[in-house]
């Protein structure tokens, strides 16, 4: 299709505008982390490093990061196993009720977080009489993280077809050997991308977490929400946010480096 130069320019301009829109609020966060005004007025009356110093000495923020990493890592590990099994089942087999199972995987993310949240809260406390703890958060997070792994692995399985697996079986490899030496190496980058997304999803989740975290389990989003409206803490939250934005480049860079495949980052 031949696009006229003016249409091209228009699309490029819109792209630039959209990026500006995406980054402007983040830039405001970065600037506000140096803003001397606690009410974050614009333009900033002065700049200071105080908040950065306070943030580095905030035990609450540090602990919250630790808790979030623990939850996200465990939930991601569970999601990786369950999501891979599920995608192998759905992509390599045909069976009755397949589309319902497919829907079931998507449901925890497609239904609003508050529904998942109160449903699990009710199930944990009402039905199972469990104390809410860090475990309940992990179970909840793993449940909605399955879908990101599932989607990535399924897309990869669909693309790679089953020729290599059949060849491996014809050459006498057992199921496990075929998985270990043929299927898994081809899935590795898809697993990495799905795992990264699952980690990110869990790390940033607030609504389901609110309903499934026990007292004293402060993930980073819960800590942020607690401190957002405290006048003395809001700038510290800004600092934490800036650090998160900077750190977020790392996993994206890894994913790009390893997979080299943009499709997998969805």
């Amino acid at each position: 299709m031949i696009l006229s130069a003016s249409v091209r320019r228009l699309l490029a301009a819109l792209t630039g505008l959209t990026l500006l829109l995406l980054y402007l609020p983040l830039a405001v966060v970065v600037l506000n982390s140096f803003n001397t005004s606690k009410s974050l007025t614009w333009p900033p009356p002065g700049l200071t490093f105080d908040w950065w110093e306070r943030a580095f000495h905030s035990a609450g923020a540090r602990d919250a990061v630790g808790t979030s990493v623990e939850v996200a890592l465990t939930a991601t590990a569970i999601a990786l196993v369950l999501g891979t099994l599920m995608s192998l089942a759905l992509q390599r087999h045909d069976f009755f009720g397949k589309s319902s199972v497919n829907l079931l995987v998507i449901l925890p993310i497609a239904l609003p977080g508050i529904v998942t949240g109160i449903a699990l809260n009710n199930a944990f406390r009402g039905i199972l009489s469990l104390q809410l703890s860090i475990m309940t958060v992990i179970v909840a997070h793993a449940t909605f993280c399955i879908v990101t792994v599932f989607n990535n692995v399924q897309a990869r399985l669909r693309r790679m077809g089953s020729n290599f697996e059949e060849a491996s079986a014809d050459l006498g490899a057992g199921l496990w050997t075929t998985f270990r030496l043929v299927t898994f190496p081809q899935l590795r980058s898809a697993l990495l991308a799905g795992g990264l997304l699952a980690f990110a999803l869990s790390f940033d989740e607030i609504i389901v977490t609110t309903f499934t975290a026990g007292a004293g389990v402060n993930t980073l989003p819960i800590w942020i929400l607690d401190n957002l409206f405290r006048p003395n803490q809001a700038p510290v939250v800004n600092v934490v946010a800036v650090v998160l934005i900077l750190l977020s480049v790392v996993p994206i860079w890894i994913a790009q480096k390893i997979s080299g495949d943009i499709d997998n980052l969805r």
Partner: peptide, 13 residues
């Protein structure tokens, strides 16, 4: 990249 910035921080921004 903005996906990785906290949801809460974006709302607060």
């Amino acid at each position: 990249t903005p996906l990785w910035a906290s949801y809460l921080v974006k709302a607060f921004a």
